[in-house]
Structure formats: C-alpha cells, structure tokens
Amino acid sequence: MAEAIAFYTLAVLILGLGVAVITTPKTVHSVVFLVLNFLCVAVLYVVLRAEFLAVIQVLVYAGGIVVLYLFVVMLVNLKRAPEAHEDPRRLARLGLALSGAVLLELAGIVVYSYGRVTPASAPAAAGPLTGAGNTEELGWLLYTDYLIPFEVASVLLLVAMVGAIVLARRES
C-alpha cells in the first residue's frame, strides 16, 4: 500500500514536471523543472531499492548535467526570441501525431506483453538484492562481470571531455 501511494504520487509528479519541461516558454524555468523531475526520479529509485543509483542521480544529473545546462542557458545571450523564426517546411502537428503514435505503440506493447505474464512472478520479499547492501553488490558487479564495459565508459567520458573542450574553445 505504501509503495502504491509512493508510486502514484511520484508518477504524477514526474509526468507533470516532464510536461512542464517541454511546455514552459522560458528556458531557465525549463531547467528548474528538469532538476525537480530528476529529484523525483531519484526518490523513485529509493522506492525501487536502488539507493546507490538514487545518490548518483542526484549527484550527476541534478548536480552536474543540469548545472552544465544552466551555464549554457546563461552564456547564450539571445537578442531575439529563440522561437521567432519558423521554417515553413516544419510539420509540428505531424510530429505531435507521430509522438502520440509512439505512446500508443509503447502502451500496446506493454498491455500485450504483460497480459500473458502469470501473476505468479511477483517479487519475493527477500532476494539477493537485500543481502549485503545495494552499493556493495553493485560495486562488486561493476568491478568483476562488467569490468570491460566500465573501462570503456571511462574512456568514453575522457573522449567527451576532450571533445567538449575542443568544441567550446575559441579559435584565435
């Protein structure tokens, strides 16, 4: 019951803030709604017993990536409104219809695939997830089974850092 209340509250918050992110006219407000959205997703991770990911979500997303967005919003000094010019070839209504089709398709897949799953696959109360603590088990997996993807991800971050510096540098 507690999980149901938490889930529905968080779902309403996440979806409402998501809609607010893409509908507010001012970009700064959009960034603020994005932070709140990320924080709600972090709380949802806690509900799902992924405490380490919740902390990472707050640190990396709400702390790092959103600050990057805020810096860019502040650096981009617009002399005219960003949505003043519209391409006559733009098909925004078609885009809206297509994204509605994406939602219908995803909902159809969910209903179709979960309709044939027997409810016997409900989670057991105590599983391997509750053994040694989420962070410890995740760290164990990351440094044993997933060591090579982990190293590849670190190289990817290095490449992204170099690329961002090269792109944002002023050519003189």
């Binding site: 979806l15 998501g18 809609v19 992110v21 893409i22 925004a92 885009g95 809206l96 297509l98 994204s99 509605g100 994406v102 939602l103 995803l106």
Partner: peptide, 10 residues
C-alpha cells in the same frame, strides 16, 4: 519517453 519524443519533435 513519449513526453520526451513530443519535446524533440515539437
């Protein structure tokens, strides 16, 4: 995900 798709397309 669909909200994100709407944002990208619109």
């Amino acid at each position: 995900f669909s909200i994100g798709v709407i944002g990208v397309l619109v």
